[in-house]
Write a protein that binds this DNA or RNA. Structure first.
Lengths: 368, 368
DNA sequence: CAGCGTTTTGAATCCCAGG
DNA sequence: GCCTGGGATTCAAAACGCT
C-alpha cells in the first residue's frame, strides 16, 4: 500500500493508511475540513441476553464482543455524539457521512445527526437477500439494515452521481432500498482457525455503491470503525484515497494485508456515466437566437389548456403573466415549479412536440 | 357503524367510533390498560401547522416562521414523547404499538420509544412498489417508509401470529421488508373536486398485514392519528374493534362514511393458521396410562444410535441416565434440548414411527 | 470431474405455562 | 415474584462429501 500525504492548512493527511487508537482522538488529530466522505459502521449496541440455538441445536455465534457493550442508551448516546462531532469537524463543507446500523442503534444515530446539524439526505435500506432467519418464530426475520446518508449541514452541497447510480440500476433511478447479499463465501475473511475474522464484515458491493454514489475519484474517504477494511479495499479499487481508524491491532493487521492485495481498477472503468447535469446548459434564448423557434410563435402546454407567445429575448408571454418558460408554466399551473422544456410544445409537421427536442438538437450540435 | 362499549374498571371504552379533538387529551380520557394494539401514523412534517407546542407550551406558529432547526426538533420531540406516554398508559400489559414514519421523524420516534421503556421488536420497512420518483435527480428515490413495532415494556409478552404471516408469505417466514404498492386507484379516497382527500392515506394492505400479525379477532385497536380511517376500515373487515382519534372534522366525516360501507369478513375467514404452541399439552405419561405404550417397551432414537426403556411413570431409562423423554434425549445427544416426541421412535407394523403419532392420537380423542 | 445430497453459518435485543 | 422443565423453532448460499 502506498501511503501518501496531502498537506493542508492544518497539517498533513495520512492517506491510505490505518490509524490506531480511539477513533475520536484519532479524528481530532487530523486537520479540520479535510475529508470528502465518512463511512461509519459503529457498534450496534446489541443487547443480547442468553444463548440462542438453531432448531438443529447448534449455537448461533453471536456478536458478544467487548466493543459492542454499553451500559445504557445514555452511554451509547454519549459515545455516538462524541464521534459524530469529531467527524463533522473533519468533513469538508460539501462533505457527507454514511452511517449504518440496525434498530438497536440507528434511531439514536439518526437523532444525534439531526441534533448536531447534519442534514439527512436519505435513509437507505440494505435488504439482505440471505439474512439469518428468526429461529424461534417470535418476530419477523431481521432482513435489513439501515444506512443514513447526511450532508455536513442543511443546504450544503454534496456529491451524488445520479446518472452513475441510474446506470447501475439498468437505467432506472436508484431507489432507497438496495438488495445485496451478506458477506460470505470467498470474500469473507477467515482467521487461522477458519473462523470469521470479524463478526460483522460488510460486503464490498455495499461500499462500492456508496462510494460510486457519493464520491469522485481522488476523494478522501474516512472510516472511523475500519474493522477489516472493506471501506479501504473498495476505496482503493475505485481510485479514492482512504483513511482508516481501528482500535484492535488484529483487525488492522488483517486490513493492511487485505488492502495491499487490492488492485485499483483502470481509469477507464472508473469513469462514471455522466449525468444530464453535466451536460451543457442551454438557455431557451439560444433556441430563439438560432431560429429554431421565432419570436411571436405560439407554444401550447402539455395538457393543451394554456398558450404562450415567444418573445425575442427568449421569454414567454401568456394571458396575464410573463417570464421564463419555467416560470410561466409554473404560474399557469399554479405549481411551485415546472420544467418548461417538457411542458411547452410546438407544432412540427402537423405533430405537437416538446421544445426539449430543440434543446437536444442544440446539444447534439454542440457535441460535434 | 355499530358503536359498542366495553366496560372496564376505569370506565367505558367507545368502541368502533371516532373521537374528536387532541389525541393526547382523548387518550387520557380513556381507561388505562384497555387497548391491545396502537397503530400510529403521526405527522412527520416538522412544520406542523399548529400541532406543535414549544417546551414552554407556547404555540408554534409554523407556516411562515423561520424555523430554527433545534427548536423544531425539540418541539417535535416534546409532542412525540407526550403522545407516546399517553399511548403507553392505554396499552394492556401485553399490548404493542406500531408507528410509521420516514427519515424526517422516525429517528425521533424510535429514540423516544426506547427512552420511554417500550421494547422494539422489529423495524419493518414498507418498500413501495410504485414510489414517487425523485424528480430533481439529487437523491435516491424515496422508495420506502419505516415502521417500528414495539411492546409496552422489555420482556412483555406480545401477540405475533407467526404461522399466519408465514402462510401469507407462501410458507416462508415473513421478513422485515414488505413490498406493497402505495394507495391509489379505487382505494384512494377523493374529495368533491376529485383531489385526494388525504395526503398520506395508507394502503389497506399494509394495515391488513399489521393487524393480522399483531392482533386477534375481538382485540381493541386504537389509532390516535386516524385520518381517513384506514386502520378502522381494516379493523372492521378483520373483526377487530377500533377506536379512532382525529382532530379534523372533515377527515372524521370521510372516515365515518368509509367505514360504514365496510363489511366484516365472515367469521370463518378471519381464522388464521395456528402454531403448534396453541395445541393442548399432552404429558408422555398419558401415553403410558392409556396403554398406547407399555412400561418396559424399548424406544429408539431418531438416528437409531440410542435406546431407552419406558417406565410406569412415563419416564425413560437409558444406559446411564433417566428422566423425561426430552431430558434423556438431550443428554444422550449432548444437546442443550431435545423434543422427545419427535426424537423417540417405536415399532408399529414393522415400521419405525415417532411417538408423536400417539400424542396426535390422544389430541384427536380430546377433540371429540 | 460432474452431480447431488448433507452440513454449516450469518449484527439476534428469539418461550412460557405451571408450580 | 422466581424457578423448573416441556418442547417448539430456520432460510439462503456456500462448503463439504459421497458416488
Amino acid at each position: 500500500m502506498t501511503t501518501k500525504t496531502k498537506s493542508t492548512g492544518a497539517g498533513a493527511l495520512p492517506l491510505n493508511s490505518i490509524l490506531s487508537g480511539d477513533c475520536i482522538e484519532a479524528m481530532n488529530s487530523l486537520p479540520a475540513a479535510s475529508v470528502d466522505l465518512i463511512f461509519a459502521d459503529p457498534p450496534y449496541n446489541l443487547q443480547l441476553k442468553g444463548d440462542l440455538h438453531r432448531p438443529n441445536n447448534s449455537l448461533v455465534d453471536a456478536v458478544d464482543d467487548h466493543w459492542d457493550q454499553f451500559d445504557s442508551f445514555k452511554a451509547y448516546d454519549t459515545f455516538t455524539r462524541a464521534w459524530l462531532k469529531a467527524a463533522q469537524r473533519l468533513l469538508k463543507p460539501h462533505g457527507a457521512i454514511w452511517v449504518i446500523g440496525s434498530y438497536h442503534n440507528i434511531f439514536r444515530v439518526g437523532s444525534a445527526l439531526q441534533d448536531q446539524g447534519y442534514w439527512i439526505l436519505n435513509d437507505v435500506v440494505w435488504r439482505k437477500s440471505n439474512p439469518m432467519p428468526n429461529f424461534r418464530g417470535k418476530r419477523f426475520t431481521n432482513a435489513h439494515e439501515t444506512m443514513i446518508w447526511a450532508s455536513k449541514s442543511e443546504g450544503a452541497k454534496y456529491t451524488f452521481n445520479y446518472e452513475a447510480l441510474k446506470a447501475l440500476n439498468e437505467g432506472i433511478q436508484m431507489r432507497s432500498d438496495w438488495v445485496l447479499p451478506i458477506c460470505n463465501g470467498g470474500e469473507r475473511l477467515k482467521d487461522e482457525k477458519g473462523d470469521k475474522a470479524h463478526p460483522t464484515q460488510k460486503p464490498e458491493a455495499l461500499l462500492h455503491r456508496v462510494l460510486v454514489a457519493a464520491t469522485n475519484p481522488g476523494d478522501v474517504v474516512l472510516d472511523p470503525f475500519f474493522g477489516t477494511g472493506t471501506t479501504g479495499a473498495v476505496a482503493k479499487k475505485l481510485g479514492r484515497d482512504f483513511i482508516g481508524i481501528e482500535r484492535e491491532a488484529a483487525y488492522r493487521e488483517i486490513a493492511e494485508k487485505r488492502i495491499s492485495k487490492v488492485r485499483r481498477f483502470d481509469r477507464a472503468s472508473l469513469e462514471v456515466t455522466q449525468g444530464k447535469r453535466a451536460e451543457p446548459r442551454v438557455p431557451f434564448g439560444q433556441v430563439v437566437e438560432r431560429g429554431l423557434l421565432s419570436p411571436g410563435e405560439e407554444l401550447t402546454s402539455l395538457n393543451g389548456r394554456h398558450r404562450a407567445r415567444i418573445r425575442a429575448d427568449g421569454t414567454l408571454v401568456a394571458l396575464d403573466t410573463k417570464g421564463s418558460i419555467h416560470q410561466v408554466g409554473a404560474r399557469l399551473e399554479g405549481a411551485p415549479s415546472c420544467n418548461g422544456w417538457t411542458y411547452w410544445h410546438f407544432r412540427r409537421d402537423g405533430q405537437t412536440v416538446p421544445i426539449d427536442l430543440l434543446r437536444q438538437q442544440i446539444r447534439a450540435e454542440m457535441q460535434s
